[in-house]
C-alpha cells in the first residue's frame, strides 16, 4: 500500500502533491506482463481490461500501467496468443519499445 508522507489539512491536494495517483492497492503479489515477441497487437486485452490499464500509443499496445492494474488476470485469459502472463510483483518488466518489439 502506498501512502503519501503528508496529508494537507482537509486532504486538499495541490498540483504537484502526487503526480500519479496509485490505484493498484488491490494487487496481491502478482502483476501481468507481456511476451512482446508473441503479441500481435490485436488490442483484445485492451478492450477487456476493466481498469483501462493497457497503454496505447498511436493506437498500438505498448505496455501496462501498474498504477491502475488491479491484477484481475482478465488480460491473461483474453489474449488469443497467450502473450500476457503473470509474474511476481518485483519482477522488472519493459514496455514494447524498450525491448525493440516490432509493431
Amino acid at each position: 500500500m502506498s501512502f503519501p508522507e503528508t496529508i494537507r489539512p482537509g486532504a486538499v491536494i495541490l498540483r504537484n502533491d502526487q503526480s500519479v495517483p496509485n490505484m493498484s492497492g488491490w494487487r496481491t503479489g502478482k502483476k501481468p506482463t507481456v511476451k512482446w515477441s508473441q503479441c500481435v497487437d490485436c488490442l483484445i486485452c485492451w478492450s477487456f481490461c476493466p481498469d483501462a490499464a493497457m497503454i496505447l500509443e498511436d493506437g498500438h499496445f505498448v505496455g501496462i500501467d501498474y498504477q491502475a492494474c488491479k491484477g484481475c488476470e482478465i488480460c491473461v485469459t483474453s489474449c488469443p496468443t497467450q502473450a500476457v502472463y503473470m509474474v511476481p510483483e518485483e519482477t522488472p518488466v519493459s514496455l514494447r519499445e524498450e525491448i525493440g518489439g516490432v509493431l
Binding site: 500500500m1 494537507r8 482537509g10 486538499v12 495541490l14 502533491d17
Partner: peptide, 11 residues
Amino acid sequence: GTYGAFAMPEH
C-alpha cells in the same frame, strides 16, 4: 487544489 477528493480505505 483539489478539495473534497474521494478517499479510499487506505487513506
